[in-house]
């Protein structure tokens, strides 16, 4: 279990971000320690995706973001990737016109050729069914396979922190388990994972710690194993007025 004595891998302080005039996040504080899985939960529109986009440099932000001891102010997504902070965006946005292998190869863009090739092969080993289709065009993959391909892309650089945005969206329960199992596998290799998810129970099952975001701010931080957590979250989602009666 991570303790506060350890140096955080990712420290976000007072982060605000949004789209043009629309402020989505205001003053978000989170930390991620090396080698832990942190689940980021919260209702729709709470700002989870915005948070990931800000941290990875896809959106401008104000506040403080430190990753592996270095300030990420003004860092482009490319610089973030080079620093070991990889963001797998939501909606399995792979390149459908390229082959599976080319998709994965692209993640190694800029690396020395031989090393890139080697790490591509290692990433492909995570999902044998993706590896088997390496010469097919990505458009022929099912939604679940495309998601696995997107995660595979994220693995190529052996990131220190992998941020997964709703990897479960549109997947069958079996596939969700596969993808989340990959996250657990990664933790075993020392990679930290920041997981944005809608599926609360499945996320809690793999996560070490949980943040819940509502209306652009952190509403809750807890250990994933804290008793009564699902009920608390449920209240957050449906308003505070009275406790819903559960069947």
């Amino acid at each position: 279990m991570p303790t506060s004595a350890r140096e955080p891998l990712l420290a976000v302080k007072g982060l605000s971000a949004g789209y043009g005039k629309i402020g989505v996040l205001s003053g978000v504080d989170i930390v991620v320690y090396p080698g832990e899985i942190v689940a980021m939960l919260g209702p729709n529109g709470a700002g989870k995706t915005t948070l990931l986009k800000a941290v990875s440099g896809l959106l401008p932000w104000t506040g403080e973001v430190t990753f592996a001891g270095r300030s990420m102010a003004g860092a482009s997504p490319r610089e973030a990737v080079n620093a070991g902070l990889v963001h797998v965006v939501e909606g399995h946005r792979i390149f459908t016109q390229l082959t599976v292998e080319d998709n994965v190869l692209l993640a190694s863009y800029g690396m020395p050729r031989a090393q890139g090739r080697k790490q591509v092969e290692e990433a492909l080993d995570f999902f044998p069914e993706i590896k088997a289709k390496r010469h097919d065009r990505a458009v022929t993959l099912s939604g679940g396979q495309q998601q696995m391909l997107a995660v595979t892309q994220g693995l190529v650089r052996k990131p220190k922190l992998l941020m997964l945005d709703e990897p479960s969206a549109g997947l069958s329960p079996v596939l969700v388990d596969r993808v989340l199992a990959a996250a657990a596998q990664l933790r075993a290799t020392g990679t930290a994972v920041l997981l944005v998810e809608q599926l609360i129970e499945k996320s809690l099952a793999v996560a070490d710690r949980v943040y819940a975001l509502t209306q652009g701010a952190v509403a809750l931080e807890a250990s994933a194993k804290e008793p009564g957590l699902p009920t608390k979250l449920e209240r957050m989602y449906f308003g505070q007025k009275d406790t819903p009666h559960l069947a």
Binding site: P43, E197, I200, K202, L233, E234, Y237, F238
Partner: peptide, 8 residues
């Protein structure tokens, strides 16, 4: 509804 939101 609760399940859909909480993803149980």
């Amino acid at each position: 509804v609760v399940n859909a939101y909480l993803g149980a």
